[in-house]
Nucleic acid binder design. Structure first.
Length: 879
DNA sequence: GTGTTCACG
DNA sequence: ACGTACGTGAACACC
């Protein structure tokens, strides 16, 4: 029998500091529990123990405190964020059937010590798990201590028995007590012998073996005079420390460690807990293990009907027509379809039908007569459009709804969303592969899984739609997000043309220069090395060349552009490295990256515009990201010449909002002075300077304007004097004065900032003008950095988010109007405050005006929206 | 898989 | 005394 005994406090504590803060939707911190369970599972895997016991300290005085009230007196209590996780962890352990052991008056390591002794004496083996080196004194006589440590963020495990301990420390495990009684332990407030540190203590023990041995030989010549006096003066302290550092291995245990019951998992309680904690992967882990015993409860629907005859399929589609929303699962490849009709799931498999019939089925499903409820339909819509089917009748998308309800979740696949809202574990099956539905591929299983998915979509609709209403988000959903999904699908389908020849030519010139720089850098360094490796670069610059290292990262020297820029004067290699960095970035990310994703079918790039990623409501763009194409440097900007209109009869029309975020700020802050500046059509940064410095507009110097521009940006992000100082290169004090002056001038902004924080603290979220929310559990944190972060977000989210709402409205308006006017022009790109339309030359003027009108008219604001539009044959020219 | 860097708004 | 702007995605090195 193998028993594993875990120091619960030690491992939980380690987990708390090792895992970034996580919260569930109710605001409960969960990171330490998460880390603890991860560790526990790994340990179970590694050690395969027959029984597991977790020991905890009890929050009251121990026998050590009774005798010495100084013991652990300098210990701070657990932070609240950790303390609140303790009772929940205990619940989880109970549900897992893991034995817990705690005893008033004793610490966890006394329990570890006693359990391990009893277990070993009984002839079983015992593994003690802890993060506390002091417990290594328990190693030996059949007890192995598994020490958990963190090094540079990663967790390391090492097993100690008496031999491995001796190898590393050079003395017996039990002598750790003697060592501590000499050198003390500041974290437990164990005094030791004043004046004796680690070095002397180890030397003494090497000579005399034990504390007693030392005191018996106090006059020995090997003890230096100074040490002898300190030992003499500190004897009582040493004896007391010895007592304190000794783990009690004779505690009257509340349980019999030789007769532990096997773990009994309370499936129901554990599922409920892990669901509440939102630990999806642990749920999966248990679902897998539990599979044999408890079958996943099937949704209470009738048995799935497999529809395989044409006339049945069409009859079904006809029956679905009407007002009643119909949940459907349609994989992008359309290898099969599942729909829910009056609570009965129906599945249709492509291979059961002729190609024409299948196409007709799909066409009818999306002809608008059936109000469809789908999950994450955007890619499907794009695929349908590509195949010439205009998808209509999309009534609800449960993925979008889940995103609006909480935008900070990161991912919203059906499995996750079902787990959090329905407490339902879905089979994770890919329906994309047509073989999944072949009789050989286990057709029944694939159909059954698909049916579970469609039932989940239906149930989610029932859950999420009312929640949207409750949150007053229905308008945001119906008028912005849902229609936008079709717009995004259309943009993705159309894509953007790039000129591959020009791109390759640009790549070659970059390559030539990169080769030159590489040679020069090697020459400067006196050796060849991987310039892309920050580690090697750091070694060359700061060790070999001896340049002054200013900043460090977690893993070594920082070599980022800011740091290098400051080193420019020191060595010619720096300039070359900076240029090398810039050029290799352009080459690998943009030239090579873009060439890789040109669709051979149409020579265009079809970026995916993600609608459920950002916490603020913005879109994001992937594969490739077209929202970060260079513009700030002239060389990088050249890349925009490669983004071209379809042919010589076509142009790109590029329209961007002028200062949208500051206008939003002026509006929601009701700041009269800032609104007035915008109404008057002034250069806002110059106007700010004029007002802040009390000088006429004409006397504003470029320097004043530039500082105010930085302040304007900073304000939007939730400013601090430190960061502003760093940004514009003035002292922190000066930066602070700028901010103060600014907020004095724009008192509405000041009020807004304070109000935004207060409201967010009250409601738990920040909100945009259109009612989009961002929850802010950070505000509950006791950690000042995290809380400050929450406050900055509370100020920034409404601004950035409202700007995102506005351009989304504009996109829907532009898209609808292009259709209404039967334009050939097509919306193809969005870059946060910029829209790009590809238009036939003859529509150039009309589209330029259309874009401006629809963008400026998206929302009426006190500081009116202004958009500027320009056309050209490529992005460089149009922008 | 994580960390660093750097591209954008 | 500490660490500091907000929001993203991709490439690369390194474990």
């Amino acid at each position: 029998m193998k028993i594993m005994v875990i120091d619960g406090n030690s491992i939980l504590n380690r987990a708390f500091y090792g895992v970034r803060l996580l919260t569930n939707r109710e605001g409960l911190y969960t990171n330490a529990i998460y880390g603890f369970l991860s560790t526990l599972f790994k340990l179970q895997d590694d050690e395969q123990p027959d029984r597991v016991v977790v020991c905890f300290d009890v929050r009251e005085k121990t026998f050590r405190h009774e005798r010495f009230d100084t013991y652990k007196a300098t210990r701070k209590g657990m932070p609240d964020e950790l303390a609140m996780q303790m009772p929940v962890l205990k619940e989880v352990l109970d549900a897992m059937g893991v034995t817990r052991c705690e005893l008033p008056g004793f610490e966890a390591d006394d329990l570890l010590g006693t359990i391990s002794r009893v277990v070993c004496e009984h002839g079983d083996t015992c593994v003690v798990v802890t993060g506390d080196r002091d417990s290594l004194q328990l190693a030996g006589n059949g007890t192995v201590v598994r020490l958990v440590t963190s090094k540079m963020g990663q967790t390391l495990y090492k097993n100690y028995d008496a031999d491995t301990f001796r190898e590393e420390y050079g003395f017996d495990p039990i002598r750790l007590i003697d060592l501590k009684s000499l050198m003390g332990d500041s974290s437990d407030n164990i005094p030791g012998v004043p004046g004796i540190g680690e070095k002397t203590a180890k030397a003494l023990l090497a000579d005399f073996g034990t504390l007693d041995g030392i005191y018996e030989n106090l006059e020995d010549a090997r003890i230096k005079k100074g040490a002898r006096e300190k030992l003499r003066d500190g004897e009582q302290s040493a004896r007391d420390s010895y007592w304190l550092a000794t783990i009690d291995r004779n505690v009257a245990l509340p349980l019999d460690p030789t007769a532990l019951p096997p773990a009994f998992v309370d499936q129901e309680a554990l599922t409920a807990l892990l669901t509440r904690l939102e630990f999806k992967n642990f749920l999966k882990k248990f679902a897998l293990q539990a599979d044999a015993q408890t079958e996943q409860p099937q949704a209470e629907h009738a048995a799935p009907q497999l529809v395989a005859a044409e006339e049945d399929a069409f009859a079904l589609l006809t029956a679905l027509r009407g007002e009643q929303p119909v949940a459907a699962v349609v994989p992008v490849g359309r290898t099969a379809i599942a729909v829910l009709s009056n609570g009965t799931p129906h599945a249709l498999v492509e291979r059961d039908f002729s190609a024409e019939a299948w196409r007709e089925i799909v066409r009818r499903l999306f002809d608008g007569g059936i109000p469809l409820v789908l999950h994450d339909a955007r890619e499907l819509l794009a695929a349908l459009m590509r195949d010439g089917i205009e998808p209509r009748g999309i009534a609800f998308d449960t993925c979008l709804a889940a995103y609006l309800l909480d935008a900070t979740q990161g991912s919203y696949d059906l499995e996750r969303v079902s787990l959090s809202y329905l407490n339902r574990q879905l089979p994770a099956v890919s329906f994309e592969d047509e073989n999944a539905f072949s009789p050989l591929g286990g057709r029944d299983e694939a159909v059954a899984a698909m049916v579970q998915h469609v039932c989940a979509v239906d149930a989610l609709y029932g859950e999420l739609a009312p929640k949207l209403e409750e949150n007053n988000m229905r308008a945001l959903y119906d008028t912005i997000e849902l229609p936008l999904m079709t717009v995004l699908a259309d943009m993705q389908r159309i894509g953007c043309k790039v000129d591959p020849a020009q791109l390759r030519a640009f790549g070659s010139t970059l390559d030539t220069r990169i080769a030159e720089l590489t040679t020069a850098i090697y020459a400067h360094a006196g050796e060849e090395f991987n310039i892309n490796s920050t580690k090697m670069l750091g070694a060359i610059l700061f060790e070999k060349l001896g340049l002054p290292a200013r900043k460090k990262t977690k893993t070594g020297y920082s070599t980022n552009a800011d740091v290098l820029e400051e080193l420019r004067g020191y060595h010619p290699i720096i300039g070359d490295i900076l240029e090398y960095r810039q050029l290799t970035k352009l080459k690998s990310t943009y030239v090579d990256g873009l060439l890789k994703v040109i669709d051979p079918r149409d020579g265009r790039i079809h970026s995916h515009f993600q609608q459920t990623v950002t916490a603020t409501g913005r879109l994001s763009s992937t594969e490739p990201n077209l929202q970060n194409i260079p513009v700030r440097t002239e060389l990088g900007r050249e890349l925009r010449r490669m983004f071209v209109a379809e042919d010589e009869h076509t142009v790109l029309v590029d329209a961007d909002y002028s200062q949208i975020e500051l206008r939003v700020l002026a509006h929601i802050a009701h700041d009269a002075a800032m609104i007035e500046a915008f109404r008057a059509g002034k250069d806002i940064h110059a106007a700010t300077a004029s007002q802040v410095f009390h000088v006429p507009l004409k006397e504003v110097t470029p320097q004043m304007r530039s500082s105010c521009k930085a302040v304007n940006f900073g304000i939007v992000y939730g400013i601090s004097d430190f960061s502003l100082a760093q940004d514009i290169g003035v002292s922190r004090k000066e930066a602070g004065e700028y901010i103060e002056k600014y907020l004095h001038t724009y008192s509405g902004v000041k009020q807004y900032m304070d109000g935004a924080k207060a409201r967010a603290r009250e409601t738990g979220y920040a909100e945009t003008l259109l009612g989009r929310r961002r929850y802010l559990p950070e505000l509950q944190s006791k950690n000042r950095n995290i809380q400050s972060f929450g406050e900055r977000v509370a100020m920034n989210a409404p601004i950035q988010g409202t700007a995102a709402d506005i351009i989304k409205i504009a996109m829907v308006r532009v898209w609808n109007r292009l259709r209404a006017e039967n334009r050939r022009a097509r919306l193809i790109l969005q870059v946060h405050d910029e829209l790009i339309v590809e238009a036939p030359e003859e529509e150039r003027e009309a589209i330029t005006a259309l874009l401006r009108e629809e963008m400026e008219g998206a929302l009426a604001m006190d500081a009116p929206l202004v958009a500027e539009a320009k056309a050209g044959h490529d992005w460089y020219t149009a922008h």
